[in-house]
Write a protein that binds this DNA or RNA. Structure first.
Lengths: 338, 338
DNA sequence: TCCTTCCATGTAATCGATTCCAATCACATG
DNA sequence: CATGTGATTGGAATCGATTACATGGAAGGA
């Protein structure tokens, strides 16, 4: 693989001149530029990004640590982040934490070792040591979707979706359809989205004169298996719930598995709704009512904020809103239309 | 961020000694090692991977260029690749080509610029110039799932799934259920999996005395929209097919969208089957019969082969087999069980 | 014609590691 | 006591770029 000095030799100039041509420095004579460019083309030379990064102390790379790649919400987020970053000539390196704090720490460490310019995180747990260290050390950092609190973290912008409005709409929908004993499969209490969704659900229920009983709050971990387990516990209760709200789409999948395994029907026996909409929800049996996040906008806003930080501009937190997409998993749709 | 010389200064040794401690070189006195390690801990020092890579000419990073992150098959593949690589202390950088040759080229270029140690590709089109150049330049490279032919590419191992057996089983299944006018939504002809699935389907049909008519072969591009379009064309035919086989799961999703939009029913009006099984297929209406690939094994085998190449060992191609998972989208299941 | 100024280019330091080679020292051997 | 051996350690080159500073020559003004 040719290096800059090979190009220099072939073009009969010094490496400095080659470097200037490569970086569009103005003071290079036109014919010299031509000669260098010709040499570059002849050799198929490409600048070594590793060497360049060492010298300039920037990698034009962003790290994205997400909780679970298999969750379509995060895949979509990753995709929009990559698209937005590419527009601005940045690359993205994804680390999949698989909802495991140790893996999250591993990825943050690896990314920091690689000297990425900025870090986009959707934190899994309360306080990964590496992440705190990175934030304190002044690494440009932005939280997406979820965030954590802690000292040194108050200056980290949070790009997220507020689900309260949509959750309230969902509760209204459930009430209108006659559901009274509603339950929630919550995310880990260590995550903000985990807690927030339970809180919003509880407040909305109260507003409608309903209560969220302790044994109708199941602890999940945002993965399918936990949805199955929690649903099993709900259905074994002396008075099982007549509606279940899963705090993410994978737990909803698990819930469906369990409901189906018991020969029960959605929504006749138990209604089901999920946070995070995905294309497949249109085609499940029945189509699942879900709360949709503006994933593309979320990813774009996150990249904008992070790159602002990286390039020394101030960045602010952004909160977008989710919206309810009504389908048939909570009961027949309102008879508003014929 | 402290550098090796800061550690050296604090420990009262030279950078050479620090480097030796960091790389477990045997000839360092125990107490010196302790002092260095203490300094490392005090400063929270982490070696700069960029500098190390420049010097050693290896990044311990693998590139993975996939056709479409939003396709659950590839997400799962990416995940298993990352897991396998991490076991062996390698990182993975994913490039999403989105089924676009230009993006594929962009990612291969970026990864090569970053001097990754090896490249794992599931090629989108026939012959990306950067990819050919990389292969010819001797970059360790392995194809997963799909592959391309071309000079310089014959030494590149291919880790893939052979779908012929499973496709034959699918055709048998369709025949047994009385379907005669079967159609296929094919992948791009430029991809091997695109062509192979059509060929295997055609041969299997012939074996069962059926024919695959030209207008029952729809050109898709492995994305949902094309599934919709092709299905629309099928259903507009004077004699529409009574069974549709989608060459991947996203096109199956598109097909379902279109079928449902027309108020038709699966499988009563038209049967549906897909290549690539995903968790959601259990819960669609009806559950979709699909051909499942051993994704985890595929990813692991690919990483093993690539790292063998990277570390100078020979590597061989691997072919695994897919299997048919019968559900209800082609008709009622065989009455083998009560 | 001589000096100033500017343009184009080269020289060399630098980024943070790794590693070859040389130097030092303690100790053992003859 | 002189010399050889092996264990530790340091000095300095190196990887491939970028960039401050120096240099040489041409052009312009007095």
């Amino acid at each position: 693989m040719p290096a800059i000095k090979d190009v220099a030799r072939r073009a009969g100039v010094s490496v400095a001149t080659v470097s200037r041509v490569l970086n569009d420095h103005p003071s290079v004579r036109a014919d010299t530029r031509e000669r260098v460019l010709a040499a570059v083309a002849d050799l198929g030379y490409r600048p070594n990004a590793v060497a360049r990064s060492l010298r300039t102390d920037q990698t034009r790379t962003l790290g994205l640590v997400i909780s679970d790649v298999l969750n379509p919400f995060f895949t979509e987020l990753a995709r929009s982040v990559e698209d937005a970053a590419r527009e601005l000539d940045y690359s993205v390196v994804i680390g999949n934490a698989d909802e495991r704090p140790d893996l999250q720490d591993h990825h943050v460490r690896t990314l920091m070792d690689r000297r990425i310019d900025g870090l986009l995180v959707s934190p899994t747990d309360g306080g990964s040591p590496m992440m705190l260290a990175a934030a304190r050390a002044g690494t440009p950092m932005v939280f997406v979707d979820r965030w954590i609190e802690g000292e040194g973290l108050d200056r980290v912008p949070v790009i997220r979706t507020d689900g309260r409005g949509a959750i309230r709409a969902l509760v209204a929908h459930l009430c209108a359809l006659g559901h009274r004993r509603v339950a929630i499969i919550a995310g880990p209490a260590a995550t903000t989205t985990g807690r927030e969704r339970v809180d919003a659900f509880r407040s909305a229920l109260r507003e409608f004169g309903l209560e969220l009983y302790e044994d109708h709050i199941g602890q999940g971990d945002f993965q399918a298996d936990s949805g199955r387990r929690v649903t099993a516990r709900f259905l074994d209760l002396p008075h099982p719930p007549d509606a279940i709200f899963a705090a993410d789409n994978l737990m909803a999948l698990g819930a469906m598995d369990e409901i189906r395994a018991r020969g029960l029907r959605v929504p006749a026996d138990v209604a089901l709704a999920a946070f995070d909409d995905i294309p497949w929800f249109v085609h499940t049996d029945p189509p699942i009512t879900a709360i949709a996040q503006p994933t593309g906008a979320l990813g774009r806003a996150a990249v904008t904020a992070l790159i602002d930080l990286v390039e020394g501009r101030p960045a602010e937190s952004v909160t977008l809103s989710a919206r309810l997409v009504t389908r048939r998993s909570c009961g027949e749709p309102e008879r508003s239309k014929p």
